[in-house]
Design a protein around this nucleic acid. Structure first.
Lengths: 243, 243
DNA sequence: TTGCAGGGTGATGAACTCGTGAAATGGACC
DNA sequence: GGTCCATTTCACGAGTTCATCACCCTGCAA
């Protein structure tokens, strides 16, 4: 069964105090994480940029480049969004807290319990992985992120009404299959359908936005059968498909 | 049904009706959750005790050990505080009281919408994670330290009312996702919502503080869908997604 | 060729959603 | 009892959304 042998938690530890580094590093390794280690800001930053860590533990006070700077550069220059947990000493806490805007995700005040550190790291790793799992629908060069409700085609952002969006989501999820009007209507309005043939209008308005401004239409009408969303050209390539 | 990418959350589903279990399980997995499954109370309890789930979906009627008993044992004997969502066939007061006494955290009456189930699970998972007190939330150039409740944007400190802060925290945690008014209201006020549309006022006042004084707005209205917090400019960079 | 059902196009008004701001409420503290 | 402040409630107007309708176009079969 699912045992969370999170076999790969790759952690970067940036800490100049050798004693703390050793203690934390050993604990984490015993818990199954892989730990890379850096003793100063510059080498820490290099490692952080060069590799994809699950999380970075960063001491605030470091020789040369301090933790805030490392974090800021990592975010602003290297554009890395690796979660960062900052370690701060109690006396620097108040002064430097404002600096958390540098882009840290959590912090821990020294001295701390290693067990707590681990709990926090786990939370960060998990939170980060969740981001990736949002449902993203793709058809041709069009993309719909169902979590943020952002719709783009050819890198350009499009605006669609709520029902249009729902309609589009249905077609994208079913793509490249044909979906009958009846099915679409039932999925959008449930049991209480509108009296008139509203769907036609919505289809029209949807097409106006997602197809009209582009060279290749994605939304196709199958006469007296329904509608389907697909990029015809790219379909020709993969002629034979499974049933 | 056991997948290994623990992403959106790890869920234990205890349900003896195979059809319901399959439908719910598949939906949740498609949404990025990992789902473990048990068809009776005893094995459900074993799994619940052995692993750390983010949330447990528990049918009330189960062969052998029923849902209430499972929940009770989980709390009293195994001392686990994993959130439990109970599935009940009828919506009677006794059922609710019994479930409450046994230690359930939420209910859903069959038949239900999978979408609603997911929304509730998300809320439970979120609620549970909120326990971790120090967490630094970052959206664009805005930072909220949930431990000190200090809020800054562009290095400038901002003052927001308690409810505004709660509202902001919700939006930041979900960022850049769209959060519906209903979800926000449920998370702020629980079951006893205000009579009027107070949320609008709070949103208005929040915007006044966090957006009005700045060039780039972070709080965006998605008409008849909800609200989302995000820095649009920095989002454009990450348009392309994996298939 | 004609007829017609299915489908595209576009305007309209009613209903709804939101932003805005001010006034009423109500609880905590003095 | 009185003051302060967060929160709720209310009212208004601007802006959106959507069902509905009227009319035109197109594919297709007789």
């Amino acid at each position: 069964m699912t045992m969370h042998d999170e076999q790969a938690g790759l952690i970067l530890l940036v800490e100049d105090n050798r004693q703390i580094a050793e203690m934390v590093g050993e604990f984490l390794e015993r818990r199954g994480y892989s730990v890379d280690y850096a003793a100063d800001g510059v080498s820490g930053l290099h490692l952080a940029v060069a590799n994809s860590y699950d999380v970075i533990v960063l001491d605030l006070m470091l020789p040369g480049l301090d933790g805030l700077e490392v974090c800021r550069k990592l975010r602003r220059e290297a554009k890395k969004s690796t979660p960062v947990l900052m370690l701060t000493a109690r006396d620097t806490l108040e002064d430097k807290l404002a600096g958390l805007e540098a882009g840290a995700d959590d912090y821990l005040v020294k001295p701390f319990e290693v067990r707590e550190l681990e709990a926090r790291l786990r939370a960060l790793i998990r939170r980060d992985r969740r981001q990736v799992s949002t449902e993203v629908l793709n058809v041709g060069d069009m993309t719909l992120d169902t979590a943020t409700l952002r719709l783009t085609r050819g890198g350009q952002e499009l605006t669609v009404s709520p029902i249009g969006l729902k309609l589009l989501a249905i077609l994208m999820r079913e793509s490249p299959r044909v979906v009958s009007r009846r099915d679409i209507e039932r999925e959008i309005w449930g049991d209480t359908l509108p009296d008139s043939d509203t769907l036609r209008s919505h289809l029209y308005n949807l097409r106006r936005v997602i197809d009209k401004p582009f060279a290749r239409p994605l939304l196709h009408t199958i006469h007296s059968a329904g509608y389907r969303l697909a990029d015809l050209e790219s379909e020709v390539a993969s002629t034979v498909q499974t049933a």
